[in-house]
């Protein structure tokens, strides 16, 4: 499990001669094992934040990840290697081959009989399940979820949100979920960080006041989600 601390973290990109600021002095801390949802409008820099946490981008300011994390990452799209079967895609993430572990995770995400299938032979939802399994089977200490259900139809996404809760209960990872879906944030996270439009600043940080397991149909969850939207609108 990893402790995450951001202090005055900023990020700019050079667009031609112009410097475009994407993240502006973000500060927050996340204790080991906590689940944080980062909620903000499209294009506000949420994915950039995850890229920084995964070590894919440089930044200004301070970022503390203690101890050094083993990062699992679920991307917006499955990002499987099309020339490898699903089981070999999962094995690719491992440092040492472990067929039993791969099969175990394939079963856990409901892909038990599909290990020898190629990504194009299964549906997008199944590919995304394989993407989730790939991120979880390495036993990450920091799990980054980048709008993992945004490319799926709502029915499949809903089902996977429920299943994700169960899968996450089997890991002890610190989790950061990036989303623009307030209900998803309220359903899955312990805390929600609201970001403004680009350049992203922290608008508010809220505890999700519901015990687990949560019910997606619960009116208070919907109410909380609506309050998140109001906060975002007020910030905008």
């Amino acid at each position: 499990m990893t402790r995450v601390v951001l202090q005055e973290l900023s990020k700019s990109f050079l667009r031609g001669q112009e410097e475009k600021k994407v993240l502006e002095r973000l500060s927050f801390a996340l204790e080991p094992g906590q689940f944080l949802a980062v909620l903000g409008p499209s294009g506000c820099g949420k994915t950039t934040l995850l890229h920084i946490l995964a070590g894919l981008e440089d930044y200004q300011g301070q970022l503390i990840l203690e101890p050094r994390p083993r990062v699992g990452y679920v991307f917006q799209e499955p990002r499987l290697l099309p020339w490898l079967t699903l089981e070999r895609n999962l094995a690719f993430a491992l440092r040492r081959p472990d067929g039993a572990k791969v099969q175990d995770w394939l079963r856990r995400v409901g892909l038990g009989g599909y290990g020898r299938y190629y990504p194009h032979q299964v549906s997008l939802g199944m590919q995304q399940r394989a993407g989730v399994a790939r991120a979880l089977l390495i036993e990450p200490s920091l799990l980054l979820l980048d709008e993992p259900f945004s490319s799926l139809d709502e029915l499949t996404a809903q089902q996977m949100r429920v299943e994700l809760q169960g899968w996450l209960a089997q890991t002890a990872a610190t989790v950061i979920l990036v989303t623009h879906n307030p209900l998803e944030a309220a359903y899955l996270a312990d805390r929600v960080l609201l970001l403004s439009r680009s350049p992203a600043r922290v608008l508010a940080e809220l505890e999700v006041p519901f015990p687990r397991p949560r019910d997606l149909e619960a009116p208070e969850l919907w109410q909380f989600a609506r309050s998140l939207v109001r906060c975002l609108e007020a910030g905008a």
Binding site: A54, G55, L56, R70, V71, Y73, F75, E77, R79, L81, L84, F92, A93, R95, R134, I138
Partner: peptide, 21 residues
């Protein structure tokens, strides 16, 4: 480039990236 990004996240070395990706 997205597949290279994925490989980096999962800590793959240069040779593995060259061979598998």
């Amino acid at each position: 480039p997205r597949l290279f990004q994925m490989s980096r996240v999962f800590g793959k070395g240069a040779l593995e990236v060259l061979y598998f990706v």
